[in-house]
Amino acid sequence: MVSSSCLHSVLDTAVNGIIVINDKGTILIYNRACEALFGYKSDEAVGQNVKLLMPSRIAAEHDDYLKKYIDTREAKVIGIGRDVIGRQKDGTEFPLELSVGEAVTETGRQFIGVLRDLRATKEYEERLRVLQSNLVTMTRVNALDEMGAAIAHEVNQPLTALMLYLQTAARRARASENSDEALLSLMDKAVREAERAGHIIQRMRTFVERQAPQSIGTGLASLIDDCLELVKIGHEADDVEFFSTFVDYEYQLELDSVQIQQILVNLIRNAGEAVKGQPVKQVVVSVERDDRCVLVKVTDTGSGIEEEALSHLFKAFTGTKRRGLGIGLAISRSIAQNHGGDLLVEPYKEGKGATFTLRLPVNSKAAS
């Protein structure tokens, strides 16, 4: 017959935690692996109810479950095994795989639990899930890239034709005796936006291939005004107030104006959508600057961005809009980082709208 001391020595060499309890839930044996798992020493655990090692929400039901099993033999864990949650001495909860066997001894019915720490397994599964998710996202991004190249090729021809039609119509309208100056102004703006669309398409390959942006000296205040004017056209019926507080029209930055305009138009449009239905409908663009960087801030009077949305806000295909691919902010941040800057959002504050900050390095031609 194996002695009790010999049995305990064998159990202490086991890699997995081993606990033996009686039919009252009292811990009879608690091996060394359990000490490492739960943080309780053997003399702290033996003699205590096994609920000591469970979160309170589970512990409250354990005695009833044990009694029900003894009365009805209806097993939920015993002889089956399952994943459970354990609680360490410091209160930390962690996942465990629990297998339970039953034995009838001279001193009564006993239950032997074998415990395996699942934290490393769960972490691996989570990493695998994230990698799979990233793989799916990258597959979609690659597909989008291929689609974008095809679309760019197909769109260039009708876009060029559209510009020619608009220019011809504008010339004929000017030659008319009763020319409408407001209409001519709108047509000129349409031609400029068609040209801008053409520039954006031409730059897409540069952006995707991560080539250096085509930096030129650009007046920042004028660039912001152009973005605001463009967005206002789509919000004339919404009673949204768009304005900029930056009026230093002499200040210039070395940047790719087309790509930075993409970012600002996206931010301002999003802000305009956010203030719809609000008592105050206002979108403000402001600028802060020093010798190292320029911060262009787009602030709205909307309901703000909830904290749970902030962690994935700049990830592709995870946008909060009901329509769209959810890639606008992801692309905008990539453009900003390609310029050596970044795109950030301020933490959520109750009662405050959202503020997005475009940070750009100063390789500037600041006016004297």
Rank of each mutant, 00 (worst) to 15 (best):
M1G: 10
S4M: 00
S5E: 11
S5T: 04
L7Y: 12
H8D: 15
V15K: 05
G17Y: 03
G17T: 07
I19E: 09
N22K: 06
D23F: 00
G25E: 09
Y30M: 07
N31C: 08
C34S: 07
G39A: 05
Y40A: 01
D43S: 08
D43E: 15
V46G: 00
Q48Y: 01
N49V: 00
L52E: 04
E61G: 05
K67A: 12
Y69I: 01
D71N: 12
A75Y: 03
K76G: 15
V77D: 12
G79S: 08
I80A: 11
I80S: 13
R82V: 02
R82I: 02
V84L: 09
I85S: 11
G91P: 14
E97P: 00
S99D: 06
E102G: 02
V104Y: 12
Q110S: 04
G113H: 07
R119F: 04
E126Q: 15
E126R: 15
R127N: 15
L128G: 00
V130L: 11
L135D: 10
T139A: 14
T139K: 14
V141M: 13
L144H: 02
E146D: 05
G148S: 12
G148L: 13
I151C: 02
A152C: 12
N156Q: 14
Q157C: 03
L162W: 11
M163I: 12
L166G: 14
A170M: 14
R171Y: 10
A173D: 14
A175I: 05
E177A: 14
E177N: 06
S179Y: 11
D180P: 15
D180E: 13
E181A: 15
A182W: 05
A182F: 07
L184W: 10
A190Y: 08
E195Y: 04
H199C: 07
H199L: 13
M204Y: 06
T206Q: 08
T206A: 05
V208Y: 07
P213L: 07
S215W: 01
I216C: 05
I216Q: 13
G217Y: 03
T218I: 10
G219Q: 14
L223N: 08
I224G: 11
D225Y: 02
E229I: 02
E229A: 10
V231G: 06
K232G: 00
H235Q: 04
H235D: 10
A237I: 11
D238G: 02
E241L: 13
F246C: 04
D248N: 14
Y249T: 09
Y249W: 03
Y249G: 06
Y249R: 12
Y251Q: 11
Y251F: 13
Q252E: 15
L255D: 02
S257D: 09
I260V: 15
Q261N: 10
G277A: 02
K281S: 01
K281D: 00
Q282D: 00
D290N: 15
V296Q: 04
D300F: 00
T301G: 02
G304Q: 00
I305V: 10
L313E: 01
K315R: 09
K315P: 00
T318K: 13
G319W: 00
K321E: 08
G326Q: 03
A330E: 01
A330K: 01
S332C: 07
S334D: 05
I335F: 08
L343G: 05
E346R: 03
P347K: 01
P347D: 05
G351Y: 01
K352A: 11
T355R: 03
T355L: 01
F356Y: 13
T357A: 08
P361Y: 07
V362E: 13
S364P: 04
K365W: 06
